[in-house]
Amino acid sequence: MNKNASGKAWGKGHWLLASVTLLLLLGVALLLGASSAQALDENNCLSCHGTPGLTKTNGNGDVISLFVDEKKVNTAAHRYIDCTTCHTAEPHKVETALTKLSLAQKCGSCHEYQYRLHLDSVHGRQLVYGNSDVATCVDCHSSDGSPHSVIRVLEYAAPAYKKNIAQTCARCHGDEGLMASYGIVDKVYESYMRSFHGKAMQLGAYEISQLDKATCANCHGYHDIKPASDPASPVAGLENLAATCEQCHTGAGVKFASGFLGHREASTDNVPVAYYTEIFFSSFLVIVIGFGALIVLLAIVRYSLNRWRE
């Protein structure tokens, strides 16, 4: 114990100064040294596969990219699962062709429940037949279709985050040509965005508490999504539809559900009364506003002329 510190070369003041400086330096070092999380890469796969442009040519002569974007994999949901968990212990010996189905199967080796639901969905049933048009895991969970970019659903940038779901579905369901080949002619995305649900979803903030409005999946289902023509679909028939509405609109019945225009515009054979209301109000609007614009315009001309002649 030294009670006479002031006599020493290193007084209390000096110690304090030194500690503060050290802390500051440590802070700066931490800031400089801080980087985003590193994906787990036990076998150093990224030392080769992290090189952009790395490709191979398979037996069919197709050039296949072997590049894995380190930036994306570092923020991916599975960043702490080693490459070989999915790519097997000897990844270079894999000979099976990569298909949408094999990709889904791979996800399903852990996410079994979702995979089984998916296989029984309108998308999954087609997947089994080798149809590559249909959506599978990565089409909705990855922003670029790569399994290395799958991020958690509750991240704002996730394609399956509630605010983004409609846009994600619209990647395919907004493609008129693709939809027409399956006989889907309704402009589902446009009609959703016209509805109050879509507008509120678009105007709302990203906080999940602000997103308590229905989006595609709330009515049609998620992994087990069924076509509206399937009696098991939550939107098949007024009874099912009413039960689906009722999940949010307490007390909603068949009458309430019957007011839904479907994903179509009102027309002479789709809620005609709404169609005629639309015609009435838009004509009325044009006539009255036209009349108002005319008298204002005439008045402006008259008043200007009066002023000019003064």
């Binding site: 068949v254 009458k255 019957s258 009364v273 709404a274």
Partner: peptide, 8 residues
């Protein structure tokens, strides 16, 4: 009212 009252 009937269901169409809402879209109307």
């Amino acid at each position: 009212f009937p269901g169409w009252i809402v879209p109307v």
